[in-house]
Design a protein around this nucleic acid. Structure first.
Lengths: 348, 348
DNA sequence: TTGTATGCGTTATCAT
DNA sequence: ATGATAACGCATACAA
């Protein structure tokens, strides 16, 4: 059934070694054009396909990268994965997929699996749930001599390459934009302090305030996680305070999207009563006319993959952190000036 | 550097064969508890990790499935991929990722790559761009003896397993819903006839009309592709006709989302002047309060993977088509009855 | 210019 | 209960 190089060799009247030479296009070895043609012909005729598994075993190289992510159900993660795959494809690498299910125990087994498959490097997309155990995962990888790059968190830059969005800059631009529009009481719905993104977005928020000489007030900061928005009841109570904010900078578009109905219920007009700026620029942000900080997840994936391949090539480099620029996309939720043309919609 | 079974064997004072027996937990072979412990100990101490590549070569099995998709940038595709990965993980299979970039030539190379890696089956997520060449891809796979399952198109059910959403039923439910709300002039923005989904959605539309004894009018049907919405100008002209539709059933939520600004410009009120129903139930559909037909892409991925593994287990089964049920999610874009509670937002 | 021999790390078969 | 050996399919060094 399965045809191997020996079969081709027999059919072409040559030895398996010759078949190998022909198939791998080793040009610096002289081969008569006639043999070459005979071999190619036989291979074609028999439908010969070199067995990568055998090749990998022999050469000790797999040209395969592991991609470990929390879940492809998140479109942000999926777009990172798209970037990884594009770059890997361009550099002639293969991608073995693994997910953590946001469960540290499952993650550990998946890493084990990837290592057994002899991946030559690992792209890890960080998540809130598995961040606490990341350090011990790095131990395992270091032990195994398999380099890796972490996307979307730089907590461990001291020992591993990190590729992140420049969240301080992004958050600062967002809040500066609100300040520029005249706001002084600006709230922040953050995501706690477990992830560097959450910390950096809070940091950028504070920097922007400081630059404008607006005092920071802890009572204007809310939120513990990227994955759960404030409950409607909390929002209600929070906005019913004596001195409510006139603007809101959220660490995630989704938080805003989920709260829009609550705002409507409360007769809070956007942006007149409350200006909104979100983060990530999900495609629904355009549809909802939400101002947002765009992150380019595809670029994150590509950059991380490039970095990983560079490190595989030269393992001794010092771990570095790469901050990809963000871009504030101003829409109707933060400015009363009408947008002349409907925002262009990203390709699906 | 890399520790192999021979190293463990030496350290434990046994032979490599014994190490293999211990590591694979072959219980039906008697092994003294003391050797077992010695081996486990040595393996632990040395950080031994069995080499899957070698194992695969020897056993001729890889327990690896190829996942071929157009691009992870589409959240629909990504959620299918999530389902594939979940099911594969549950059934102890690995996933090698490949994308077509919506380019038939690139797709061909990727399939070649997957076959060389000895994947035992292939999950193919169909796309408009690569559908024309699918048939010849199936030839290659059949030749290679590698089974596959196609998700999201059933054009080739006669020779390959297909897993799709029940689009006729979904479309029919959507249009019946509009008819039930009193509409008689219902337009359809479709996606041409290249894909079975587009044809089926049109079919369901026609069925619902027929059931209600509403004559079909070709002038109410527009659209050629899932990936490009009607341009704003086209929408304008189309709605400026003498006898405009009072309701619109679109084959894709995105088409609706992109046209909402146009409707607003034209002072067309939703749903009073024009009721809208979309398809796919993207997360933005909830935020935009769009009625939509939910497809559960994760279930598509899971079902396809199950089917593929079944076929690998028993290759002689007749190819089958599996239609997963859809579910109409009624929201404010198609009914004037206010929704009492804000639509729950899907987890990100 | 081409063929032969060897080994990659593992497991299955047989022998002890 | 454990060890020796062969084989999986291929690429490389070296011989011819």
């Amino acid at each position: 059934m399965k045809v191997c190089s020996r079969d081709v060799a027999r059919a072409a009247g040559v030895s398996p070694a010759t078949v190998s030479l022909v198939m791998n296009g080793r040009t610096h070895i002289a081969l008569s054009e006639s043999t070459r043609a005979r071999v190619r012909d036989a291979a074609e005729r028999l439908g010969y396909r070199p067995n990568q598994v055998a090749r990998n075993l022999l050469t000790g190289r797999t040209r395969t990268l592991g991609l470990l992510l929390p879940s492809l159900a998140s479109s942000f993660v999926a777009r990172i994965a798209d970037g990884v795959q594009r770059e890997a494809g361009d550099r002639d690498q293969h991608v073995l997929l693994a997910h953590t299910r946001r469960d540290p125990a499952f993650e550990q087994r998946q890493i084990e699996m990837l290592l057994q498959h002899q991946v030559e490097g690992l792209v890890i997309v960080a998540s809130e749930e598995t961040l606490p155990s990341l350090e011990s995962r790095l131990d395992v990888l270091e032990q195994a001599g398999v380099p890796c790059v972490v996307i979307d968190d730089h907590t461990h830059v001291d020992r591993v390459d990190c590729v992140v969005s420049d969240d301080r800059q992004g958050a600062e631009a967002a809040v500066a934009h609100l300040i520029h529009a005249g706001h002084r009481r600006i709230a922040h719905w953050g995501a706690g302090d477990a992830t560097s993104s959450a910390r950096d977005r809070l940091g950028g928020y504070r920097t922007a305030l400081r630059r404008a000489r607006i005092p920071f007030s802890a009572s204007l900061v809310l939120g513990d996680s990227f994955r759960s928005a404030p409950a409607p009841e909390v929002v209600r109570q929070w906005l019913a305070r004596r001195n409510p904010p006139t603007a809101l900078f959220a660490a995630n578009d989704r938080h805003l999207a989920e709260c829009l109905p609550v705002f409507r219920d409360l007769r809070i007009r956007i942006p007149e009563d409350l200006a909104l700026v979100g983060y990530a620029n999900y495609d629904f942000a355009a549809y909802l006319d939400l101002t947002s900080v765009d992150q380019d997840p595809t670029a994150l994936g590509k950059a991380a993959t490039r970095r990983l391949l560079d490190r595989i090539a030269s393992p001794r480099m010092k771990p570095s952190r790469m901050d990809l620029p963000t871009r504030l996309v101003v829409r109707g939720s933060s400015t009363v000036v009408p947008i002349p043309v409907p925002a262009p919609c990203p390709a699906p």
